[in-house]
Design a protein around this nucleic acid. Structure first.
Lengths: 349, 349
DNA sequence: CTGAAAGCGCTTACAG
DNA sequence: CTGAAAGCGCTTACAG
């Protein structure tokens, strides 16, 4: 009435307007069964007339679900993560949930802080793409169901009780098959190249690479690591030098592929004639690039969808994570950079 | 005590442990000045000992700020928007705010629904990259400060009172200068090409294109619109046909650039020899592509940062939007596709 | 500088 | 099928 903000409509206002008790309105809102058709109509009419909207803060205070889930990820600007975020949202919205997204920039304690703040705000569940070294203790979680995506969460050895469900893409198999594809082209000296090797998924891809090599009696080369364009050039120059230059490169993620292509361009090596390349992860323009870049296609949308569904199911059934692991197979975009479909020399070029 | 979830620690628990009244604890938490050093220490000790965290729902119920802002955008998977989202988050986190992101997929009423739900949850302010046809009435906003980013919000003529602050990138100037750069290369038949032309920013870029053309006594061609790869091919084939084929293409955004490059590749036209190209918006791999793609570089990070700062300032000072418009200049990445730095024929190719 | 009491807008047993 | 009362965990005047 006299407050600075025009007082908003409350349950009590609706009740008065409808000539019933507040709790009847509450029951109507919560879809309680025992309510007369007639009363329901009266209540609905008042709600509509007044433009009433329940105050979520009050509901949450009473322990009602917020219908909000949190999504914590390393970086939204990274297309891999933003694509996951997209499908998480789609799936959540379709089921009436809002998504709260927050990025960590791969700093471990930020993860924990975000979980804490999201809990303070009563999210019903959390989807976590963990930072590097995040270690989760049971007390960090309280009772919120949490599901790890893409990167497993570490649990301190003292607390083996903390079960976290985990949904990921089948990195190792996909890497193995991609490398086997390169091997089938006759390449024998194949290098696995990339950035940080301590991320779970990258580790898995390296393992897949090694498995493929060994399965064909080839010696896996040590993982070749770089940080930026300059180091990529340095490292790739080395790979291509000597009497037994590398015949194919297997970048462990999209960012690494871009760096590899930059370096190869800088050093004037042509793909796939001098080195073949099979990217783990598709990138924009890859299908228009010359040569078109062959890539493992990561089902990020499916990943987000499955993880979200799983979380919402846990929430709906009030069940706890059981430590279940789900992995989703990747697919392959066989284009040109691996050595397939060698483009015929282009008359226009 | 006997509830299913282990009862969480409340203000009262802390007060009891510290031997003070609840409101002393409340004052401590809210940084009230009048409190003895000694009392403050006792309270802090109890808070730490009990691991107390304030219940945000209760605070919000009392009208306290939630320290959450909403960010509504058309699509998170789109790198342009996700990059904005990234900087919004960075800026907000740095000031202790959480960001709630939600995507609309360009559906107009979803915008309004999201605003409503965010208001239900007591966000302190909203950053909106509006959907296509979103029309905002004052009642949609209540008292939450809202700032439009990148796309202006429409206000129904009957409500000229609704003032919405607006932060955008200087599309028109950037487009004009990019096209003038093409003109400086001697191209006279230049086409502006892209997808949906009804988005504000695209309209502005088309206007910029037209301004540049007219300023040099050239006739602007009608905006060339496509929808997917097939229509892009059709449309570009037409552009390149006849006795006066187009000499340069100016795609109105990153997605259009990718389509144009796809079509040109498909039709075996070489860039920039047969057609030059200047992209509005940089894209991944553009600097490694052959030719390297010249592009208008959009300061998305700055956009997000400025808009967020502005919103947080409005919140902090409890002031209302005044309808102020801010525009941020773009910069230019002059590479090869415009005709500059023509690559010397590559010996390795 | 500190406190007892009322109240924010809902929901939850408990009656009727 | 409906209601009066208590309470969720905090903050806000108002006292002292």
């Amino acid at each position: 009435m006299d407050s600075p903000n025009p007082k908003s409509i409350t349950l009590a206002d609706v009740a008065k307007a409808a000539g019933v008790a507040t709790m009847t309105v509450s029951r109507y809102l919560n879809g309680h069964p025992n309510i007369t058709e007639k009363t329901a109509r009266k209540v609905k009419a008042s709600i509509d007339a007044l433009g009433y909207r329940p105050n979520q803060a009050a509901r949450m205070l009473m322990g009602q679900p917020s219908r909000v889930i949190g999504l914590i990820l390393p970086d939204i600007a990274n297309p891999f993560f933003s694509s996951i975020a997209h499908s998480v949202q789609q799936t959540a919205h379709a089921r009436g949930y809002l998504v709260w997204i927050a990025a960590t920039n791969d700093e471990a304690n930020i993860d924990l802080q975000l979980i804490e703040r999201m809990r303070d705000h009563h999210v019903d569940g959390i989807l976590l793409i963990a930072s590097f070294h995040t270690i989760l203790r049971p007390r960090d979680l309280g009772n919120v169901p949490l599901i790890a995506l893409e990167r497993p969460v570490r649990v301190p050895p003292a607390h083996p009780k903390l079960l976290v469900d985990f949904v990921k893409i089948e990195d190792r198999n996909a890497a193995r098959e991609a490398v086997e594809h390169l091997i089938s082209h006759g390449y024998r000296r194949i290098a696995c190249f990339g950035l940080n090797s301590k991320i779970h998924s990258i580790e898995e891809r390296i393992l897949g690479y090694q498995e493929a090599m060994r399965a064909h009696n080839l010696t896996p080369l040590p993982y070749v690591q770089c940080e930026d364009k300059q180091s990529a050039i340095r490292v790739i120059r080395k790979l291509m030098a000597g009497r037994a230059p590398v015949q194919a490169i297997f970048p462990a993620n999209g960012a690494a592929t871009i760096l590899a292509l930059e370096a190869l361009d800088e050093l004037h090596y042509s793909v796939p004639d001098q080195v073949a390349l099979f990217s783990f992860g598709d990138i924009p323009l890859a299908h228009v690039f010359r040569p078109k870049i062959s890539a493992v296609s990561q089902p990020t949308e499916l990943l987000g969808e499955i993880a979200t569904r799983h979380l919402l199911d846990l929430i709906a059934t009030r069940s706890s994570p059981t430590g279940i692991r789900t992995s989703i197979p990747a697919s392959y975009l066989i284009r040109e950079s691996c050595g397939c479909h060698r483009p015929t020399p282009d008359k226009n070029y």
